[in-house]
């Protein structure tokens, strides 16, 4: 089941059953725009450090924290906190080419009182799934670069 199949349901949003039992996150997913990520190669400082590894480390640390914040905020219906965390995660995801996570965050930012709690909960579950996929992809890239 692709990201588009899961989310492409018009305003109704998500099909929660599509990711109810996700397959183990694989490194072949399109969760990360590798072209965008590899474009950071030209910014390498040439001092022996690897900017891409550094950015992946920063992202993995930050994204895990933001997803937790979003989940907790959705449970406690703290919409301001939820939107703020989604906004920040969208920024870092967009910068690094983690496109599906960025798209879900954008939808979370646009949430308002008209969205049912179930819709929000489904979207948060989708975010957790896509974030896990992206993290696995990024971790694999990181491992390859360190080898």
């Amino acid at each position: 089941m692709s990201f588009d199949q899961v989310t492409n349901n018009g305003n109704e949003g998500i099909n929660p059953h599509a990711f109810a039992t996700p397959s183990p996150p694989g490194i072949t997913s399109d969760a990360v725009d590798m072209e965008l990520l590899n474009a950071f190669e030209e910014l390498q400082l040439g001092d022996g450090s690897d900017l891409i590894v550094e950015l992946i480390d920063l992202y993995l640390l930050d994204a895990a924290q933001r997803v937790t914040e979003i989940r907790e905020a959705s449970i406690e219906t703290e919409w301001v906190l939820l939107k703020r965390a989604a906004h920040t995660l969208r920024g870092s995801s967009g910068s690094l080419g983690v496109r599906h996570v960025a798209e879900i965050c954008e939808r979370l930012e646009r949430m308002d009182g008209r969205d049912s709690p179930q819709t929000v909960a489904d979207l948060v579950r989708l975010l957790e799934y896509e974030s896990a996929m992206a993290s696995a992809s990024l971790a694999a890239v990181r491992q390859r670069r360190l080898n």
């Binding site: 950071f40 910014l43 400082l45 900017l51 550094e54 950015l55 920063l58 992202y59 640390l61 930050d62 920040t88 920024g91 870092s92 910068s95 690094l96």
Partner: peptide, 17 residues
Amino acid sequence: EDDAVSRRILETLLRKW
């Protein structure tokens, strides 16, 4: 910039320039 990834990218770009 409060987002660590965006901050590091910006910093790297500006130093490069």
